[in-house]
Every structure is written in structure tokens, then in C-alpha cells.
Design a protein around this nucleic acid. Structure first.
Lengths: 240, 240
DNA sequence: GTAATAATATGACGATTCGTCAAAAAACAC
DNA sequence: GTGTTTTTTGACGAATCGTCATATTATTAC
């Protein structure tokens, strides 16, 4: 039961974050200053600093909100009732859709990976973010475990569960970063990143012999099936 | 035929870069200032600005040096005389070894991916870096093309060459970034990143049915064979 | 060899932005 | 209504970037 005080404080914090996010998206990182945020939210700079101990901590808080949104997506994927491979694919699809729908959020997440920023983070914020990231890996890991338990994935991979989680993670993370970097992938002859990522994910899972293999199904239909079942909202928003 | 003038200018530029790199590695990004660099190299700040139009351009130049080093590694891998799959693996191994040997270089490369920095880059530096990155993708692509031409990789993948290049690239890039981020992979139960990456690369190539499949060979021995043949220096330095 | 000219180097300076803190304002207690 | 605590404020000091008028060095002309 939060008191009125606490509620107001929380709401103001959200207002600050929303304002910062809008400013970041509209005018870029270097336009984002504490003074500008203060002016926009009509509180003084000192008050902003009562909420966030540094500009970096503020940006990291934005990042944490984004990761929380991703966790919600991952949790939905984990509920998917089909075979384990489809459930694992659901994570991949959710991840892709989320980043298509909120490309700026990906930038927030990446911003904090930068050393110039990270060096200045408070220990508390860093711990908060790491805890969220931990949650994400745990969710992913649970599906691999289920696949081994039910025989969809060979038992010999029991020792490699973390490698497999890391495989999906690194592939998606790398794809996302390359996509949002200024590297002109189109001009270099690359297909849309979401398509490539979906192909590559299936290819990787085939390499693991994670059943059912993609040769036996229509992967395009599977993509539609999963996204319709779990991410209807996101798909609709993307269509607009 | 560079004149004495030009030579001196070039050498001073290298001195500035070396100094900046050392400072960056020893004390982090936020300690690196133009005034400190100027003091250390015993030239004035204005002179530094004659070489680099901004702090960001200077850091990007560091990044370009690192990418050039990587290109040298990739070119060596492309010379590897074995089957195409092994040649492709050689790129993977070279990439891993390079980042193990020069973990700070990876940070340089990533620093420039950050928006806060990228927003301030001059068009020229950005173009320079993109040109280097283009070279890297071209080298990788050529091996996939060879594999299709000689039948090691099924012809049906002709349309997917860029996807396959992107698969290797994103997986390695993501792994590298995750590795150097502060996410405590060890504590989260992950194996060493280089091992996981090697397993995942083979798994992905198996999924493509890129012959010879890893079931028919000893991947650990292959790793040793390639690294001995191409990257003896790097391996020795790592052992020390 | 010297004077005129061009090229280069210098560091004081203005501008920006961060984060602080003493003082003012508001909220609260009684 | 008065005194106390909490919160807010914005002027300020510090750090750093990038500039530019001036000083220094190099080159050319004669």
C-alpha cells in the first residue's frame, strides 16, 4: 500500500523517464541534458538528481524499463504450449518483433553497454540491470532444459545448455546491434535482418538436431502461427 | 614517395594514437581527454586538432586501426588451403584469437558503435570505417561463394549467401560483445565464451549441411590444426 | 645571409554541461 | 500559529570540448 507521497514520487519518476526517452529518440543522445529534462518536466535540476544520481543512471533506468518489457515478452513465449522447439522459436520471434516495434529501445539497451557510460554507473543501477538480464537467461535456459527432458533434444547436450542459450542470445544480440548500427546492410547486399535471423536461428537449431527439424515443416507458416498466437498486438501495431 | 614532412606528420599521428590507446586502456574512456593527450605527447591541443577534428574522430581512428588488424587476420584465413568449411572456420578462429589477444581492441570497436559517439563523427571518418567493414564482409562472402561453387554447400543456398555471412558475423559479434560487457557470464554458469562460440559455429554450419559435417571429424583437433597453421604467433602470445 | 612570406603550433578563451549545496519553500507536527 | 523537518530550487564551481588570434618555425626570394 504505497502512500500518496510514494505514488507521486513514482509518477514523477516515470514522467522524467518518459520525457528523457522522448528527447533521446527525437534529438539523440547529445541533445539530452539534465537541464533540458528539468526544464521540460518543470522541476529543477536538483529534483531530477533526487531521483537519479547521475545522467548515466537515468539512462540506465531507461534501459532497465526496456529490459523489463522484453522479459514480459519472454514470459509470454515460455507459456507457448507447442513443442519445445517452437517455444524456443517463440522467444526468437518475440525478440525480433519487439525490436522491430521499438527500435529505439534497442538503442537504449546498447547505450548502456558502452564503457564511457558504464564506467559512471552506480553499483546499484548496475546490479539492477544485471538482475534483469539474469532473469532473461533463466527463462531461456528453462526451455532448453525442457527439450532435453522430453527428448526433443539429445541428452548429450546436457552439459551444453549454457552454450545453447548463449548461441541464441549472441546470434540475436549481434544481429540486433548490426541492424541498428549505421552499417548500411541493405547497400551491402544483405536481406532484411529479421528474415536472415529467422533463417539462421532455424539453421542453428537444425544443427543441434532439435526436433522437429525445419526440413519437415514450413518455417514461414510456423513464424506466422507463433506470432499470431502470442504476439497479435505487436503484429498489428507493426502493420500500421 | 612520402616527403620527410609527410613522414613526420604520419609518425606524430601514430604517436598520438598510441598514446590515446594506452590512456584509454589504462584509465578508461572518461579519463581520456584532449588536454591529457596533448600534455603526454608534448604537443599542444591545437596540434592534436590538426590531426583529428574531434575527440570522437580520434577514437574512431583507433577503431579503424583495430579493424585493419582484423582484416589482416581475415586475409590470412582466406589463404587457408583446406576445404571451404575449414577456411570459413579459420575466420571464426582468427576472430576469436584476435579478441582474446587484444580484448581492449574489441572495446575500441564497440565504443564507436555507441550513438553518443557516432552522432559526433565526421562523415569522412564514418565512411572510412564503413569501407573497412565492407572489406571484412567481402572476404567472408567470398568463401561462402567458393563453397557453393565447389559443392561443399548446397546450391539452394545461392540466394542466402548474405544470410550465411550475416549468421557468422552476428553470432561472433554478439558473443564478443556479451563477453566484454560486464554481464558476469561465469557467475551465471556460462562456459568460456571462446569454447561456446566454437561449438555454436560448428553447430550452425552443420545446420547448413556445409560439408564435411562436424560429426565426421574431431572439432577440437580441427581448431588446433587451423590455429597452428595460420595463427601460431597469436597462440604463442596467448600462452605467455 | 637576410628579409618577406607561408605554414604550423600554441594555449588562453568562450561555451557547454555536469553535479553540488546553501538557502528558500513547502509540508508537517503539535 | 509556530517551530521543525523535508523537499525543491537554481546559482555556482569544475571539467572538458573545440576555436582562433597570436607566436613560432619553415620556406622562399633575392
Amino acid at each position: 500500500m504505497p502512500s500518496r507521497k510514494q505514488r507521486e514520487l513514482f509518477e514523477r519518476e516515470q514522467l522524467i523517464l518518459d520525457t528523457a526517452q522522448a528527447m533521446l529518440h527525437q534529438h539523440g543522445y547529445n541533445y539530452l541534458t539534465m537541464d533540458r529534462i528539468a526544464k521540460k518536466v518543470e522541476y529543477s535540476k536538483g529534483t531530477i538528481y533526487n531521483h537519479f544520481s547521475s545522467k548515466e543512471d537515468l539512462v540506465c533506468s531507461l534501459c532497465c524499463r526496456c529490459i523489463s518489457n522484453l522479459i514480459e515478452i519472454f514470459e509470454r513465449a515460455c507459456q507457448y504450449p507447442g513443442p519445445t522447439r517452437e517455444r524456443y522459436c517463440a522467444i526468437s520471434i518475440g525478440y525480433s518483433l519487439y525490436h522491430q516495434l521499438h527500435p529505439m529501445d534497442s538503442q537504449n539497451i546498447q547505450t548502456v553497454k558502452n564503457n564511457a557510460i558504464r564506467e559512471k554507473l552506480s553499483d546499484e543501477k548496475l546490479a539492477e540491470m544485471q538482475s534483469l538480464e539474469h532473469t532473461i537467461t533463466q527463462l531461456t535456459q528453462s526451455i532448453v532444459q525442457q527439450a532435453i527432458d522430453c527428448g526433443d533434444l539429445d541428452k548429450k547436450y546436457t552439459k551444453d545448455i549454457s552454450s545453447i542459450v548463449f548461441g541464441l542470445w549472441s546470434m540475436h544480440y549481434g544481429a540486433l546491434l548490426l541492424n541498428q548500427s549505421d552499417i548500411p546492410l541493405n547497400a551491402l547486399g544483405f536481406n532484411p535482418v529479421v528474415n536472415m535471423l529467422w533463417k539462421n536461428t532455424n539453421c542453428y537449431l537444425d544443427g543441434l538436431q532439435w526436433r522437429p527439424l525445419s526440413a519437415s515443416i514450413n518455417t514461414n507458416k510456423l513464424f506466422d502461427k507463433i506470432s499470431t498466437a502470442l504476439f497479435q498486438d505487436e503484429v498489428n501495431k507493426l502493420k500500421v
